[in-house]
Design a protein around this nucleic acid. Structure first.
Lengths: 227, 227
DNA sequence: CCACAAGTCAAACGAGCATTTGAAATCATT
DNA sequence: AATGATTTCAAATGCTCGTTTGACTTGTGG
């Protein structure tokens, strides 16, 4: 009694997401995924061809679910004041990083640490737009036209802490700790990081106003790369 | 003509650091390391016993070199005002993250993404003290006694961006880009992150002054974990 | 010159893993 | 019920990699 035809593919995809999120591409084995999905070891190759395309499909799946659950703008309309939009983006980042089933960032974390290169194309289409949106928002908050380096450093100052949370979550994942998606705690963190970021940007802004930047547009930090 | 006896061990250690930093534990192979170190494939097992102890020795080596080159306080004396000490710690973090041979953070980055558990003990002795020092410094900057959650979130807001830089460096490592340790650029970043952090902390501080925190000491973010 | 330890080397072993294979089971259509 | 397509299955294949083995080379002390 095979449990629902074509259901196997969905189960494999789901288990693959969790496994890749936990162990990364290389440390995940087809045998392990198949066993956890209650499928035969040949099922992966039958439904997806090989391990690599299963990996790509798994990330696409995890990413799409996250986009639906937590859109990048965090529910704040596009014509809201920049401060509100920043709060929305920070909330979206934190939700994605902290969500119990938020496997998208975990897979991406592995991919950044030891790149397989398999997700490069998908990343170009997904994370680059988010980066550009963040840069544009920062540019608005900084007011008068600023050099790209300043903008990028501010964006890093905003995104960095949110992704740092992700790492802590991953560390705690295998310990006794569980109730991560605490709504109160989330809002506490959103408020903290938003307030912190707005104050930081304001300080940078006034510094620029006092002494116009000597920072050159630096190809290194500003170049077109993922993340 | 074996090039200097007992020299092989040093070459293996050096190559192992670079390889583990680039590929992580699992993706690095003994054969590859041995070949690059111009040593026989059995040399690793002769000099270190097995791959795991080579890994631990490699991290110890990379870490020790970084501690000597860039002490955590960044050259700022312990009795300097907190603002200066924060600047020193941020500089130290950025130097370690950006240094051409700064393999310590790269290995740690892999270890955090997909933990082997082999470095847990060493981490306890090395990164935890740094974390505690940062927390204490933040506590001073925040002034009046603050709850642990607030302190930790501030610390994350400081450390996060510095480690985000590390990830960008790693991405660019395999592209055409090289001259990373630009002294001017380093100071630009130190100034940016320090200014940003001080402004953020000040904002949090005044908020706390206005409305005393309702945030409970949360076991999750505050617990005793590495990093 | 000899004996002994330290170090190096090529070859082989054995485990783990992705992938293939060919048969069996199940489903859909007539 | 029969036929063909789809899906599942256990076993086998072939490759990579960590580790071991045993011989060979080099350096040292008597």
């Amino acid at each position: 009694m095979p449990p629902e035809p074509a259901e196997t593919r969905a189960r494999l995809l789901h288990v693959a997401c969790k496994t890749f999120a936990e162990k990364g591409f290389r440390d995940s084995t087809i045998a392990d995924i198949s066993r956890k999905a209650k499928a035969n070891i040949a099922a992966v190759n039958y439904h997806f061809g090989d391990k690599e395309t299963l990996y790509k499909e798994a990330w696409r799946h995890a990413h799409q679910k996250m986009v639906e659950a937590f859109p990048p703008h965090g529910g704040v309309p596009e014509d809201a004041p920049p401060e509100q939009r920043l709060r929305g983006r920070i909330r979206s980042l934190l939700q994605r990083a902290m969500c119990e089933d938020g496997l998208e960032f975990q897979i991406m974390s592995h991919e950044l640490a030891s790149p397989t290169g398999l997700l490069n194309e998908v990343f170009r289409d997904t994370v680059r737009p988010m980066r550009q949106a963040m840069d544009q928002l920062v540019r608005q908050l900084l007011g008068e036209p600023c050099d790209n380096l300043t903008v990028r450093l501010c964006a890093i100052s905003i995104i960095g802490p949110c992704l740092q949370i992700l790492r802590k979550r991953h560390l705690h994942a295998r310990s006794e700790f569980h109730p991560w998606l605490n709504e109160n705690q989330l809002e506490t963190m959103v408020e903290h990081f938003t307030l912190f970021a707005l104050a930081g940007i304001h300080a940078i802004r006034t510094r620029h106003h006092d002494s116009p930047s000597s920072a050159s547009t630096d190809k290194a930090l500003v170049s077109e790369s993922t993340s």
